[in-house]
């Protein structure tokens, strides 16, 4: 079957999708967006967290056919999403308003950015969302496999809850497993992002 939907503000179409495929498979294997990770395929790890019409969900548990006509934001689009939210002074999701499809980063441009220069493997110079920057700065990334899902979940939590308590952070991220960090640096990162956000940095 064919599935047409919007990913990171850009219309996408996947053809010959097997009916049993998940949104995660379509993103990773058909649309060239492997940022959302496949770690359990049963909604028990959160590594594939994306926003579906603004709401964080496990992409592995959404049937591909269910996203027809809907809007998905993945980690690849998080920086732009956060930027739009900051510029529009609120929420960038389809749930809180109309996302400007034209403002999304075309995939080709994103790729060119990734492939730029010999320093491409450090990704230096890439524009990041506050939560992405905070994860790097706080040492919240080790193997990084849980990171994309955590970023999407944490970013959404900070959107709803700009000044979370530690217990709020833990609850909001309780669907995202991390095996490397012991979560301490992840807590630091979210606190840091919240603090920077409230300082308007």
């Amino acid at each position: 079957m064919r599935v047409t939907f919007t990913v990171n503000g850009r219309p996408q179409e996947a053809d010959d999708v097997w009916e049993g495929e998940s949104l995660l498979y379509v993103l990773r294997e058909r649309l060239g967006l492997p940022g959302s990770k496949n770690a359990c395929e049963q909604g028990e790890c959160g590594s594939c967290t994306v926003r579906l019409d603004g709401v964080p969900v496990c992409a592995c548990l959404v049937a591909a056919g269910q996203v027809e006509g809907r809007e998905v934001v993945t980690v690849e689009g998080l920086a732009d999403y956060a930027k739009q939210r900051a510029e529009h002074g609120g929420c960038a999701s389809g749930a809180c308003g109309t996302a400007d499809a034209a403002a999304g980063t075309p995939l080709d441009e994103a790729r060119r950015r990734a492939a730029r220069g010999t320093d491409s493997h450090t990704g230096e110079g890439t524009e990041l969302s506050p939560i992405q920057q905070a994860f790097i700065d706080a040492g919240a990334v080790q193997c990084g496999f849980c990171t994309p899902g955590l970023l999407v979940a944490a970013d959404e939590m900070l959107e709803r809850h700009p000044n979370p308590t530690d217990a709020d952070i833990r609850e909001a991220l309780s669907g995202n497993l991390c095996r490397c960090t012991g979560y301490e640096k992840i807590m630091d990162a979210v606190r840091l992002a919240a603090a920077r956000q409230s300082e308007g940095v």
Binding site: M1, A14, D15, D16, W18, E19, G20, E29, R30, L31, G32, A63, G65, R111, A114, A115, T118, S120, H121
Partner: peptide
């Protein structure tokens, strides 16, 4: 000296669409 992943991110998706429904018959 570049990292290996730059090769692999450069996908051409039109090439992947040949898979048929023969895999597991299912209607949505």
């Amino acid at each position: 000296p570049g990292p290996p992943h730059t090769i692999w991110l450069d996908r051409n998706h039109s090439e992947t669409t040949e898979t048929k429904k023969r895999a597991g018959q299912m209607d949505f």
